[in-house]
Design a protein around this nucleic acid. Structure first.
Lengths: 244, 244
DNA sequence: CCAAAAGTGTTGTGCTTACACCCATGT
DNA sequence: ACATGGGTGTAAGCACAACACTTTTGG
């Protein structure tokens, strides 16, 4: 049917139209007891005074992962060596549905987790940054482009499920942290309540998740740092309403 | 440091260089007791007589998911409505490391699972297709571009881990299938042996995974179809050497 | 003095594992 | 007849959930 080797499936690197290749960052954090996302009011990237995801384009000397690292630095002003950054997904709408109607756009979305206490510096780029609670985004939130909403939704989904079987929850916290703080991360992201004692047992027995830094007695909370493990074994399953 | 709003982080859709935006397909199947990947010998996409992943470029009237669907049809000649297709990752090397040295390339990789009994039709495009065992790919396999090897590795990793907590294993089989066939999919992909009785109990008790079509007595195997569930609850964990 | 948070202990339940056993089919 | 594959049963072991209890800190 569409076996057309000469026009559509052929891609000899020359006759491509101009493609706007951009990186969008879904930077998440746990603040005020809920999951929040960092949005930017950037007239260049999001014209019309609307809020949107921070990001930018890829430099010639860097690959896309390096570009995401650099743009994350641009948006937050801080090194992120201990933070979690991963590619989320790439969005390429049909040309006809592109905003300007004519040119191809491709958006490579990344997701990153940032601890509290780390705040972006809005000054240098005349951009305004703000944390928005993701639960209120669709009710009280700012006006967002449809594609941006979809990217945020996908990023939040990825975040929620990654907490189950990886150790990324700890990257929402600055070291050292207590088990109670870590538990509140899970509770805030998932919107559930977890048993403090069983939670502590499960996390401390997961090999490589946590490194005890200060051993606390019943009154004083123990302090921990992130271990080397990336995966939690066995996984920490959400108590209610597992996906079916 | 790299807070350079005017040149690097600005991406007003106009001044982008030509970007070759292509879709690569990692089409996996379980054949001869092991995981296999479909490679194409396509002079247009992979010059020099080397093997590579099937794929192509995105048409103007379609988004990237639709393009992956269409290209999957082109490579296999068969509709895939019941098969599993998902985006894997996007690869954008630095411009300096591109094959022709000058232009930007972006490869959006998709992964798809195909049952046995479905074979691609190589004729119409003068392309040669072949299934290659992924375990032998690095020893006895064809010469592959480095980027293609990386994409295949990432796809196989994604496949192996998705078997644990989703129902995609069933998409490696044509309906109806028996629990033994499904068990051999897990065993082939993971390279392990599973207890037949406990495996059957676990799978049949996972809500929505399987729909019994023919109820077998102890001698005759029951036949099943895929259910509506996408996730396995609880997950089927690999017996040996879980990730840490 | 009381509330909240963190650590420790205990017990029952449920699931998984491992193994044994049975039934039907095909060669 | 026997090997193979599939289905059923069961006892041991383990993990987890739920709850009670203690200790410290903070107001």
């Amino acid at each position: 049917m569409s076996l057309s080797p000469d026009m559509d499936t052929d891609n000899s690197l020359a006759n491509e139209p101009s493609v706007a290749l951009t990186v969008d960052l879904v930077i998440l954090s746990v603040r005020h007891g809920g999951l929040t996302v960092l949005l930017a009011k950037d007239e260049a990237r999001h014209p019309g005074g609307v809020w949107g995801l921070p990001g930018g384009s890829i430099g010639e000397s860097e690959d896309v992962d390096e570009a995401a690292d650099r743009l994350l630095f641009d948006a937050t002003g801080l090194q992120h060596s201990t933070w979690h950054v991963e590619q989320l997904r790439t969005y390429v709408p049909a040309v006809s549905s592109a905003p300007d109607g004519g040119s191809r756009s491709a958006t490579i979305a990344y997701i990153s987790f940032m601890p509290v206490g780390v705040d972006p510096l809005p000054g240098s780029m005349a951009e305004a940054f703000r944390w928005w609670a993701v639960d209120d985004l669709w009710d009280d939130g700012p006006s967002l482009a449809l594609s941006q909403s979809q990217i945020i939704l996908d990023g939040v989904d990825r975040c929620r499920s990654k907490l189950e079987y990886t150790t990324v929850a700890a990257s929402f916290l600055e070291e050292p942290f207590t088990l109670g703080e870590l538990r509140r991360v899970y509770e805030s992201v998932w919107g559930v309540k977890l048993h403090h004692s069983n939670f502590a047992r499960k996390l401390t027995s997961s090999p490589g998740y946590l490194i005890a830094e200060f051993d606390g007695s019943p009154g004083r909370a123990s302090l921990y740092r992130r271990g080397d493990a990336s995966y939690v074994m066995p996984p920490i399953l959400r108590p209610t309403a597992e996906p079916t």
